[in-house]
């Protein structure tokens, strides 16, 4: 299969800050590709370069065979995008926003009406279609953005955190629709997400990106297999004892250890058989274990492994970041 997207050493520097750092990825036609990374990893910046909205500092990228810097017009003809940040006209109604989009993409009246109906149905905004967007709730605005992005069925569709902040039920609907678009309409989809289960459930391949660099790239299943063992997670009172960690380090059957907020995660084959032994060791070391859990590796663990923190820790800091952004906006 031909490649829908070829990225070669793509880099973006914002006055001294390397937001995207020599990224090279090929994405096949018809693939549903996920970008997973903490806040500020460079996901949005990468997508905006592919969508011709930002000029790369160096490197090249081709979308549907067209170079994003040399042939931006042709690239734009092949792509669609759902932005992470708001991009609606609040002074227009929901329907007028969709109509604007459809006409900019040269859709004829019949198709326009059909698709508007379809996507408004999908996001359950039919009864609100004719009120001004400024009177929508946050979630309704998000749903309208999604509806708009799905309207013109491009060759390549970029979804930047499409379901962020939506309720689980709506998210499910949208997942199904995205999957359908990908499978039935053969649309190549690149999506960024904070929801591990979204990446796991939807994506053929996932790239984990951190500080602008791709640190892992494979099918979700293969990524999980690289962890290669079960995760035994010990909840330990107070802080994790250094001596205890050193002690555990001597055992060959413990493949990896990772501390995070009061938990000690151990990668262990056949985890269930090792738990009694671990309890013994803890007792000898005088460490109080408050709880033990055992699970098969998830993408979350893969993320933790490569990025060094859980995505949930990331999410709590999202609020701070938003606050920081607002501050910067009003004080410069």
């Amino acid at each position: 299969m031909a490649d829908a997207i070829e990225i070669n050493g793509l880099t973006k520097v914002f006055d001294g800050l390397v937001a995207v750092d020599h990224v090279s990825i090929n994405i096949a036609e018809g693939e549903l590709f996920g970008l997973l990374g903490p806040n500020g990893a460079g996901k949005t910046t990468l997508i905006k370069m592919l969508a011709t909205l930002l000029m790369p500092t160096s490197g090249t990228a081709k979308v549907s065979g067209y170079d994003v810097t040399k042939d931006p017009d042709k690239v734009r003809r092949c792509i669609g995008i759902i932005f992470q940040d708001p991009s609606l006209d609040n002074r227009l109604t929901g329907k007028e926003n969709l109509d604007f989009h459809a006409r900019m993409y040269g859709m004829d009246r019949e198709l326009r009406e059909k698709r508007m109906d379809e996507v408004l149905d999908l996001v359950e905004l039919k009864d609100k279609a004719n009120i001004l967007v400024e009177n929508y709730s946050g979630g309704m605005k998000r749903r309208l953005e999604i509806a708009r992005g799905l309207m013109h069925h491009p060759e390549v569709l970029f979804l930047d955190e499409p379901t962020l902040g939506l309720d689980p039920q709506t998210r499910r609907h949208i997942w199904e629709y995205i999957r359908n678009l990908n499978k039935k309409e053969d649309i190549t989809i690149i999506l960024t997400t904070h929801y591990i289960e979204e990446a796991d459930y939807l994506c053929d391949r996932v790239a984990i990106i951190d500080y602008g660099k791709i640190v892992a790239l494979d099918a979700p299943k293969n990524l999980k297999d690289t962890i290669g063992a079960d995760i035994v997670s010990l909840e330990i009172s107070d802080s994790v004892d250094k001596d205890f960690v050193a002690m555990l380090g001597k055992f060959k059957w413990i493949k990896k250890m990772k501390e995070h907020d009061g938990f000690l995660d151990l990668s262990v084959k056949n985890g269930e058989t090792r738990i009694p032994e671990l309890m013994n060791i803890a007792q000898k070391a005088g460490v109080v274990v408050q709880s033990v859990s055992l699970r098969k590796p998830t993408l979350e663990d893969v993320f933790l492994h490569y990025v060094g923190k859980t995505i949930r820790e990331e999410e709590t800091s999202v609020k701070d970041q938003v606050r920081e952004r607002m501050r910067r906006r009003w004080h410069n």
């Binding site: 940040d85 609606l88 993409y105 040269g106």
Partner: peptide, 14 residues
């Protein structure tokens, strides 16, 4: 400021 420029600029319109 309100983000609508992105929507305009990403369309294939010259």
């Amino acid at each position: 400021e309100f983000g609508f420029l992105k929507e305009i600029m990403v369309t294939p319109v010259s």
